[in-house]
Computed example of a mutant assay.
Amino acid sequence: MKKRARVIYNPTSGRELIKKNLADVLQILENAGYVTSAHATTPEAGDAKREAELAVADGYDLVVAAGGDGTINEVINGIAEQPSRPKVGIIPTGTTNDFARALHVPRDVIKATEIIAAGQSVAMDIGKANDTYFINIGGGGRLTELTYDVPSKLKTMLGQLAYYLKGIEMLPSFKATKVKIEYDDGFFEGEAMFFLLGLTNSIGGFEKIAPDAKLDDGKFSLIVVKKVNLPEFIRLITLAIRGDHIKEPNVIYVKSEKVVVTSEEKMLINLDGELGGETPMTFQNLNQHIEFFANVEEIPASDLDVKYEEQFTIDQ
């Protein structure tokens, strides 16, 4: 019996690249042995999540999430709770595509589909924040609000530059928040500019912010930037882009399986670039929870906790 694949795609993402190439995407998957079908997401909140839930209930072997990190996040939220989870392929057409970058999946629609068709996959950690799942990053603080403060039209026109421009605009408003952040080996209590939880080493398009992040070790890379003045804050951000921030006295950088964040004032939580609620929030790493198709030859051994021969599988 042939395997079945369900493609859930955002028709407006990446200047409608998926929509324009959908026939070719389905043909490549058909040639790889799948019976295929597709669903175009609507602007209605949670549409991709509901469609992924239906795909699991219908017994699909493969679910392909095509769009930006937000679309992939929704699809994962429709799959993660299920006791039997299909493998997941991604076709990235968003602004930053952090998760695809970690899996070394190219932005070219056809090449990304060919990686899925090649059949190599890796079991990846995902995060759970209270009752919501995320695949790449969780965080809180004014800086992390950038991704949902940037209008969609501006992201479409300017891509990642839109985030930089918005960040410059927001710089004067950055301020610290009084928080308590508990992690496996300790806690921080005081004022912080922001905190980040990375599941991969690619955050906001930069690959050195969580330099030793692994895709499958069951731990977050936790970064906390303590209260600093504006010039020092700008200096730390510059260091972070180069990966030179982790030993700074105003930065906490640790690995942790579980993180609990509480705050006296309202702190919004960013999950994969979308608004994910507010504190209090408990973050839990779910070790090797979902299997994703990836460009396995390009993933450095240092990004993985499990040996190459044990971790990667090839479907026949």
Rank of each mutant, 00 (worst) to 15 (best):
I91H: 02
D244K: 14
L222Q: 04
V306Y: 00
T93A: 15
L275A: 11
E310Q: 10
G273R: 04
E16G: 00
T177N: 10
N31G: 07
I237L: 15
M267L: 15
R6E: 06
K153V: 11
R142I: 11
H39N: 01
L286R: 09
K208Q: 14
E114M: 02
V75W: 09
E114W: 00
G68I: 08
I28C: 01
N10H: 05
A210C: 14
E248Q: 12
G190N: 05
P172N: 12
I126E: 04
G70F: 03
G70L: 10
M157E: 15
G276R: 04
L171Y: 14
T132V: 13
P172S: 13
Y60E: 12
A162R: 01
K111Q: 15
E310P: 00
E232H: 13
K128M: 12
S263H: 05
K155M: 11
V179F: 05
V56F: 12
K208A: 08
I237E: 10
L158K: 13
A45C: 05
L199Q: 07
Y34M: 03
G46Y: 10
P86D: 06
L199F: 03
R242T: 10
K2S: 13
A23L: 03
N73V: 11
D108S: 09
I137M: 12
D58C: 07
I203T: 10
V296F: 13
D244E: 15
N295M: 06
G273F: 08
I234N: 07
